[in-house]
């Protein structure tokens, strides 16, 4: 087969793709358990942070122990999706948290929202996964931005898409509004849409499944 022939070129590229594809798959396979452990630790650590809880140390086992000892975790299937709802153990009128799933401009934005027991205020917002533009949209993960959501009013009387507002608004009601990130208007808008949609669905879930009434 001549080196510059079409048949050789196709054969060469196919062989190379197979070889390197197998190599990458092998590395992925060998690290699969470590990746799963990291994922679990990240989830538990974010959960602990969202609820403002303390741990004995900072190992994966410490976070797991804190989650198991301090939080009630309920998995509920609602509207074709499995929801994870968290409340504090042994506490009346406990804050309630859930995993929200949204979309940014590039990819998914997932995280944990913790609300007051009566759902009137957000207590914290933490991110599990986001892939926004580094230096711009990805700044949603920075502490100063997340800090703004602590104590933010959820205005249930407002229309569905404006119960919390990220960015400017015609209505002068700062209680349910935080500033958007400069240079990341689209990410801010996408995050606002996701949170409002998830809050709405979460309220329906709470009402229909009567989750908090059983605490």
């Amino acid at each position: 087969m001549k080196k510059e022939s079409t048949a050789y070129t196709i054969f060469f590229i196919l062989s190379l793709t197979l070889f390197f594809g197998a190599g990458v798959s092998l590395v992925h396979h060998l690290t699969r358990d470590m990746l799963a452990e990291n994922e679990l630790m990240h989830h538990n650590r974010t959960l602990i942070k969202a609820f403002g809880l303390e741990t004995q140390g900072s190992s994966a086992a410490d976070y797991l122990e804190a989650v198991e000892n301090k939080l009630n975790i309920r998995k509920v299937v609602f509207e074709n999706r499995e929801w994870e709802v968290y409340t504090l153990k042994d506490q009346e009128s406990s804050p309630v948290g859930f995993v929200f799933k949204g979309r940014g401009i590039w990819d998914v934005i997932n995280g944990i929202i913790v609300l007051e027991h009566d759902l009137q205020k957000m207590l914290s917002l933490e991110f599990l996964e986001q892939h926004e533009t580094p230096g711009l949209g990805a700044r949603i993960e920075e502490e100063w931005f997340k800090e703004k959501f602590k104590g933010l009013k959820v205005d249930w009387d407002n229309e569905k898409k404006h119960r919390i507002i990220i960015g400017t608004t015609a209505q002068p009601d700062p209680e349910n509004q935080v500033d958007s990130i400069t240079g990341a208007t689209q990410t801010s808008q996408a995050l606002m849409d996701s949170i409002n949609r998830e809050l709405d669905a979460f309220k329906r879930l709470i009402q229909e499944k009567q989750i908090l009434d059983r605490d």
């Binding site: 390197f20 590395v27 690290t31 630790m41 990240h42």
Partner: peptide
């Protein structure tokens, strides 16, 4: 391919 391997290894060892 090499970059993906590096990426996976960093993700596994230093998340």
């Amino acid at each position: 391919s090499y970059v993906m391997m590096v990426d996976i290894v960093i993700k596994a060892t230093s998340p």
